[in-house]
Simulated assay, not measured.
Amino acid sequence: MSDRMRMKVKATVILPTTKERAPVLPYSIGSILQQTEKEIEIFVIGDGVDEATRLVIQGLMLEDDRIRFFDHPKGDRRGETYRHQALSEEARGEIVCYLLDRDLMLPNHIELMYAHLQEHNFCIHTSLSVLENHDIEFARKPFFGYYSHADGPSLATKGYYLFSQVGHTLEFYKELPYGWRVTPSSFPTDIYMWQQFMAHRSLNLTSTQDPTILYFKRGDHPGWSAERRAKDLAKFYPLMTSDNAVQDFQRLATLNLLKERERLASETIIIRGKTLSHLPGRIIQKLKTLFVKRW
């Protein structure tokens, strides 16, 4: 191993990918390369990639030597054991960040994650959801603040945190009993992983209001094709290069939030002297639509 390969860096970024993902990778990987924190390494974990995807990754590696490609055959579930092998044997980062190959990192994601993980060992940022109509909204998240294992049960340990929102120290990862492993079919792979952290006695978590991820959910797995996803990423990716990218995206999300609240205010329902069980079904459904799903 070269001296350079032995040198510590501030962050290792895990980006898993698989076959037919060539169109989206220049955008997702590109958003990592544009981070304000430059002292990073990017681990692209291949789980049965096809030749077109492989060629795109190899081309990106020629442009930036911080990218490393772990080219594996298709494994069980999402190739979780490949992530564990890379983190256990190859990672040099003080912290570990994650990015889905369909998402984008705002330029300050790793810089802020690194700062938070100086005093904590697990961190959850929030995200900005890009809707199919290209509106941007703040993702709903039930918990902001600090939590340690000694505090007892908390919303922090029960929430659904997206793959790209999470960061942790490499040291904490190596304390876990298993790390990334094959996930039972009834669990999302990321949630199954986060449960190990939440159950560990060393957990020292912070959940912040920093919106540093652009989240593009486009249907359940497998959802939209990579070609169709890439069109969405291409629309927003140029905005990532702006000096004011973070503020611009937050401003768009805030404007959409204000519009949504104005719409809700105009649809106020007045209920006189009735319990929920006495309301017509259409009114109950309206309430669920306006409040449960939204907030």
Rank of each mutant, 00 (worst) to 15 (best):
M5G: 06
K8L: 13
K8Q: 13
K8D: 12
A11L: 01
I14Y: 02
P16N: 03
T18C: 11
E20G: 04
A22H: 05
P23E: 12
P23T: 08
L25K: 08
P26Q: 08
I29D: 08
I32L: 05
L33K: 09
Q34T: 08
Q35H: 13
K38T: 15
E39P: 11
I42S: 09
I42P: 07
F43K: 05
V44Y: 13
G46I: 14
G48K: 13
D50V: 12
R54F: 15
G59L: 11
L62I: 08
D64Q: 09
D64E: 09
R66D: 09
D71Q: 07
K74C: 06
Q85L: 03
L87V: 00
L87R: 00
E89A: 02
E90A: 01
V96C: 01
L99S: 00
D101N: 02
D101A: 02
R102E: 14
D103H: 00
P107T: 00
H109D: 01
H109C: 04
I110W: 00
I110H: 00
L117H: 01
H120N: 04
N121M: 04
H125T: 11
H125M: 08
H125E: 09
T126I: 07
H134D: 14
H134T: 10
D135M: 12
E137H: 06
F138C: 02
P142T: 07
F144P: 03
Y146L: 15
Y147F: 14
H149C: 04
H149I: 01
S154I: 12
A156F: 15
T157N: 10
K158N: 07
G159F: 06
Y161G: 08
Y161S: 11
L162N: 15
F163C: 03
F163D: 05
G167D: 05
E175F: 09
R181G: 02
V182C: 02
V182A: 05
T183I: 00
S186R: 15
P188Q: 13
M193H: 04
M193G: 00
W194Q: 12
Q195W: 07
Q195F: 06
Q196V: 10
Q196R: 13
L203S: 12
L205S: 14
T206F: 05
I213G: 12
I213K: 11
I213F: 10
Y215E: 15
F216R: 10
G219E: 13
P222V: 04
W224H: 07
S225F: 03
R228M: 11
R229I: 12
A230W: 03
L233Q: 08
A234N: 05
A234E: 11
F236C: 01
Y237W: 05
L239C: 06
T241L: 09
T241Q: 13
T241S: 14
V246E: 11
A253M: 06
T254Y: 02
N256G: 06
N256P: 02
L258N: 07
K259P: 03
K259N: 13
R261T: 10
R263K: 14
E267A: 14
I270Q: 10
R272I: 09
T275A: 15
L276G: 05
S277V: 14
H278M: 13
L279E: 08
L279R: 05
P280Y: 13
G281P: 07
I283C: 04
I284S: 04
K288V: 04
T289H: 08
L290A: 09
L290W: 03
K293E: 07
K293S: 07
R294Y: 02
R294N: 09
W295Q: 10
